[in-house]
Design a binder for these strands. Structure first.
Length: 234
DNA sequence: GACCAGGCACATC
DNA sequence: GATGTGCATGGT
């Protein structure tokens, strides 16, 4: 990833704000409205956001299935069960010891601050929640924004590995700042939120479209992806 | 058998 | 502050 970034940073041509919306329109035309995130309840979305860290979603699905089968996809159950037991259930998602600790930290936070109730959490301002989530062990910027957007319907744009890969590959952004260093999470996020109308629905579907593209036309092993809907921007 | 996948914390310099 | 490394499974 880094070598690719270096190779193209000098030739990057940033898209104008209007074009960022055009990119979304192109993707939506190709893939249709996505209705994300794949999860039946907000709590399932939160758990999925932690389990999917650096992990293929197909493996996360197996872990979630295990949790459901044992009726353990529940904040109180998850808080009460032993780490060993929880780790065994989420094993297919990989990094199971790390993720067990992270899930435990999250359900503790959820219980201590919001009595494990989504509706209480939703009442809080996004900025406050984001700060709180980032203070929870194992929740970084992407996971926090995924939880805020997809579980709590707060207007936070999610930047993930797909977003960076696709937008660098198609040279649709500035991949480096004046000092030549790569953009950090906040800079990537700002690229989108400053160009798009603030909308939960739009942020939700835009990220979902990016993931669709990343899983189909714009895979990491491919050097370029001419057949994808964004190839005209190359 | 190597590489990759919807990150993050921590150690080291 | 920047960079490197460990964490682990399952699909290709």
């Amino acid at each position: 990833m880094k070598s690719f970034m270096k190779r193209h940073s000098a030739e990057a041509r940033p898209l104008k704000p209007a074009s960022l919306y055009r990119v979304y329109a192109d993707l939506k035309k190709r893939f249709g409205h996505q209705n994300w995130w794949p999860g039946e309840t907000p709590f399932e979305v939160m758990v999925g956001a932690i389990l999917t860290q650096n992990t293929a979603w197909s493996n996360v699905e197996k872990a979630i299935r295990n949790l459901k089968e044992k009726h353990a996809l529940n904040p109180d159950k998850m808080r009460g069960m032993s780490s060993r037991r929880l780790a065994a259930l989420i094993k297919p998602a990989g990094f199971f010891n790390v993720k067990t600790r992270r899930l435990k930290a999250f359900v503790r936070y959820f219980h201590d601050n919001y009595r494990s109730q989504i509706k209480l959490m939703k009442r809080r301002p996004a900025a406050v929640l984001r700060r709180e989530l980032l203070a929870v062990h194992g929740i970084g910027e992407e996971t926090a924004d995924s939880i805020l957007l997809y579980a709590l319907n707060k207007s936070q744009f999610v930047i993930d590995a797909y977003t960076k890969r696709i937008f660098m590959r198609h040279r649709l952004n500035e991949t480096s700042d004046a000092a030549g260093t790569s953009l950090d999470y906040g800079a990537w996020k700002n690229l989108f939120v400053s160009a798009l109308p603030r909308s939960v629905k739009l942020y939700n579907d835009y990220h979902a479209q990016i993931v669709m593209l990343g899983k189909t036309y714009c895979k990491s092993a491919q050097p370029k992806c001419y057949e994808c809907p964004l190839s005209k921007y190359l």
